[in-house]
Design a protein around this nucleic acid. Sequence first.
DNA 1: TCCACATTTCTATATTTATAGAAATATGGA
DNA 2: TCCATATTTCTATAAATATAGAAATGTGGA
Lengths: 114, 114
Amino acid sequence: MQSDLVIRALAALAQVHRLAAFRLLVQAGPEGMPAGALAQALAVPASSMSFHLAQLANAGLVTQRRHSRSIVYSADYAAMGGLMAYLMENCCGGEACVPAPSCTPQISEAKDVA
Amino acid sequence: MQSDLVIRALAALAQVHRLAAFRLLVQAGPEGMPAGALAQALAVPASSMSFHLAQLANAGLVTQRRHSRSIVYSADYAAMGGLMAYLMENCCGGEACVPAPSCTPQISEAKDVA
DNA sequence: TCCACATTTCTATATTTATAGAAATATGGA
DNA sequence: TCCATATTTCTATAAATATAGAAATGTGGA
């Protein structure tokens, strides 16, 4: 993960609605949630939610796939791990640091994660 | 760590100079670096560097202490850990997740970390 | 084909953030 | 006390971002 992407990822997360949406997706797991459900959960107009989801996607933090009329978003766990790794890099000059974390869920029934 | 602080921390890191400065501080360890050295390392005017450092401090990501004429900044490792923990919270619905990382350096000679 | 639904793209406006020079503040030494 | 250094605060300007209505797009059912 390079600097520019990291900046975009951090900027994407540094906004109330996007942070909330991302966390909902993180907690939802690989199955994800449709845009409308996110908009409703956060009480944000559809067009605004779309704007925010586009930024999360642009930063590589979420993926999207169409499921019938809905567009379902899922958190990209690898991207999240990469972001953390970048922030921790060479922590304390490389001494006594915990290795970068990762969250790799066992894919249960949602194998079609785009 | 609560939502508002997390937003501020993410926003603080989502800027080239601040991300670079923070990473320099992370790598510098508890000893930290004076504002001037950071400004020089990043080729940024002193007033701009000061502006950016103030935001990192406001987000709780760095601490500052005066050392003679210089003001020395250090990364706050606990804050960084807290930020990561927040992002990972309830990852995958709480299943099969790595515990939140932390970087707790063994304080060598810099015991005066404000 | 026509219509309802889910979402996005377009648009304009309001708000926030970055930038860096100049002036102000604090520290230490001559 | 006076001066040089290190940094911050003040200021104005430039640039990026958030907001949400309205219109456009894609999907599926009657």
